[in-house]
Structure formats: C-alpha cells, structure tokens
Write a protein that binds this DNA or RNA. Structure first.
Lengths: 227, 227
DNA sequence: GGGCTGTTCTTGTCTGGACAAGTTTTCTAT
DNA sequence: ATAGAAAACTTGTCCAGACAAGAACAGCCC
C-alpha cells in the first residue's frame, strides 16, 4: 500500500495483489475499498484501478480534535479554559445530550500564539467529573479523556456556517465586532450512541479552513436488499 | 431496512437477517456497513447493533448540487448566470484542472426568491461546450450535464471557511460589505480522476449551513495487509 | 446478595469459489 | 487499413463456511 504508486498509474489487478500477498480477493477488495471511499483510487467496473492521490486525509480526527489537527500540521498550539461551571440543561441541550445537568466550558485555543478558536462546549453529566479533572491548559481534551477514562469519540454530526463576531467573540479572539467567523456546531457520541458533548466552536476567518473530501463511492445497498 | 426500527432499539442479528432475506451473512454485513459508516447504526464486536438514527444524509449529493439539496428540502429555488466567458487558465487553475483554457461562469442562486449563493466556477475546456449549451437559468447544472453528456461528479475536495463580503459579493447577494459569508472552494473530478470544475461558492450567512456526519468506523486495512 | 466462571450469542475477519457486467485487447472479415 | 466481432481480462456482487474476539447471560460458590 505504501509502495507509493505514483499518481496516474494503474494499480495491479485484484488477483495479482491477492496472489502476491497470499490473501483472498475479498480481503484485497476490502482494503482497497477504503482507498476508493477516500477518493485516492478511482475504480470502474471492468477497467484497472487508477491512483488519484497519495495523501490520506484523517478527516474524522481533524474535525474533532483541534490538537490532533494542529500537531499533524506541525503548528505550535495551546489552550486555556476561560470559564467552567455546572448548570441545568436548558432548551435543546437536555434532549440532545439526554441528561438533566451539564458542564459548560469555554475555551480559547491558540495557534502560533494567536487566539484562533473559541469553544463553547457543553458536556453530559456522566463525563463532567473527568473533564473537571483536566488542567486548565490541557492541550488535547480528546486525548486526555481517552487516557483517563477510555472515552472514544466515535460519531459526530457537524453543522458549519458563518456568523458575525459578537461582543464576547470579538474580545476573546481579538477581532473587530461583526467580522466573519467560521462556526462549527457539533454533537459527538460514543460508539454506543451515547451523547458526550455539544459544542459551538468559532474560528477566526483566515486562520483555518475545513477540508472535506467526499466520493460517491459504491453504495451497495437499497437495491438488491429491499429491507 | 426501511422498516423504521425506532432509535435506541436493537437490530436483529446478522444471522437472523440473513435467514429472513435469504441472503448470505456477508451480503447483510455489506448492507449494514453503509449504515454504520453513516453513523445511523452503532456497532461493537460481540454486542447487538443499536439504531442511532433514521434519517439518511445524502451528504455527497448535497455538497455538490444546490438544486438537489433545495429540492430535497422542499424549497423554491432558482439560478441565473451573471457572466460567462472563456479565457486562458491562470495561476493554480491550469495545474488543478490540468488544461490550458477554461470557461469562467458566475451564477447567483436564489432560495425562496432571495439570493443566497454566489458561484464563481471555472470549468475545464473539455466540458465547456456542454456548459455553454445550458440555458442561463438552468436549475441544476449537475443534473443537466449528466443528462446531456453523461457526466458524473464522482469525487470532490472541499475547502470551507468564512470570509467578509467584497464589493461584488455584497451587491449580488444584497448584503452589507464586510458581512460574513460562508465560502466553499471545491474541485470536482470524474470517477476516472479527471478534473471537471473548480469553484468558489459564497453563501449568505444564516441562509444555509453544511451538515456533515462522520464516524471513526472500521478501517480494516493497514494492519493485516502490510502492502 | 455479590462476585466469579463458563457457556452461548454476536460481530469482526478471512477464505475460496462462482457468476454477472463492463472494459480492453486481439483477431477476423471486408 | 479499417470496422466489427470475439476473446481475455478486470471489477462488482454474492455465496457458504470457518475461526477469533468480545459481550451478554446463566449458574455456581462463598
């Protein structure tokens, strides 16, 4: 896989790969399917596969963990908790997080010394103690929660839009009021479907951009199995 | 599948489904894998699968076709070409689209009568004739190009950030200068990896938001097959 | 009752084979 | 030489079976 097939070249056929690695064709297909889904390999029935790209995007991690994204790109980064308090869940929160009480945390993240991200996160009560135990300047909350209680963020739903900076936003991100911010609202759950956090993250314009890669891919359900 | 299993309930086991639909377990797995990848079904080795959601997001199509997104959500929508001209590719364009000449099109899209999206799209020369043949108020370019020349947008790479509205932006979207816009820059290719278009789309704030759903999912490569 | 152990169930992974559908190449007839 | 038909190849889909790893459950002993 890492044999770095140059972009534009044809991949060996499945049977060749299977023979070479002494694996069944289905196994090879499964491995290649990931690359096809990521858009790194083009695939058409009947024709050899073609290499479209070589850099694998770890979109999930990047979309979830500021620290992991920054580290992967070689940036200096930091974080600081601005405020943190427990309160009752209001409005949609109790429904989304399915718990009555929450922990509200506001964090500012810096990149190369400059504040670029303002996080307003609401954690479900069952994870609140672990979050409160973290230091105020914790670099990676995702990593810390995994280390301390084995929590894994497995699913995320993200809503991305643009908003004008409000009074608090402008002060903490050191931008003028009304200047554009990239807002990412997300809810994250464990692989059991248990909601963990609900967050409103605001990025300073020009500092970062979301990179998303998608592909039609094969969607082999719905037709043959009419459940 | 559409039997609408309520959220939170357990799915039948693979063997039960296989027996019920008279299919092999592998086939059932393949179908369910799509739901797991979309985050609609939670899956842990050893435990029954749990239903996490019921609404399937057609994220790819939505990310590509304004018309399809609007229609799916029941909005009235329209579009109008503002300017259209052929010119030589400049700067990064020739590299990204891998062709010397391009067709530059500027479109305004409306939702419920209001302008919400300004598209600045650059098409590769080999698709330009088909684009020029479209009417100025073509509703869905994606659909029209599929109908006329069988073109399928298979892969996309998107860069999403926030910018302040410039002079032209503010005039065409009827917003004040400097107000926040959600910008989506994307490059789209066919399933052969052939670049089709490179576009800079700017959405009025508050009008739309991108919805992205992601999951860690199973990534069954890299370990067992050390290519 | 509480904790432990072993059984049973379910999912994850892999094998080897088969056929269908589409592409590419080769061969043949004109 | 060229156009069309045939063959070879490649991917897409499915099947039936096997074993491993983890989860859920029942029963046991203390």
């Amino acid at each position: 896989m890492n044999g770095t097939h140059p972009v534009g070249t044809l991949l060996p056929s499945e049977s060749e790969l299977a023979a070479h690695y002494r694996a069944a064709r289905g196994t090879v297909r499964q491995a290649i399917a990931v690359l096809v889904a990521e858009g790194l390999v083009g695939s058409r029935q009947g024709a050899r596969r073609i290499v479209l790209g070589t850099t694998r995007s770890q979109s999930f991690a990047e979309l979830h963990s500021f620290a992991q994204w920054a580290r992967a790109n070689g940036y200096r980064f930091g974080g600081q908790v601005i405020s943190q308090r427990r309160r009752a869940a209001r409005g949609v929160e109790s429904a989304r997080l399915s718990c009555p009480a929450v922990l509200e945390v506001m964090r500012v993240r810096t990149l190369e010394g400059e504040p670029v991200l303002l996080e307003r996160t609401v954690y479900a009560d069952w994870i609140a103690p672990a979050v409160e135990a973290l230091p105020g300047d914790c670099e990676s909350v995702t990593q810390a929660l995994f280390d301390s209680v084995g929590l894994i963020f497995a699913y995320g739903e993200h809503l991305i839009d643009a908003v004008a900076a409000g009074a608090q936003d402008s002060r903490l991100l050191t931008v003028r009021r009304g200047s554009p911010l990239l807002r990412q609202r997300r809810i994250t759950t464990t692989n059991e479907g248990r909601p963990v956090e609900w967050s409103d993250d605001r990025y300073r314009a020009g500092s970062v951009a979301f990179s998303i890669r998608n592909s039609i891919g094969a969607n082999p359900l719905g037709r043959q199995l009419a459940f």
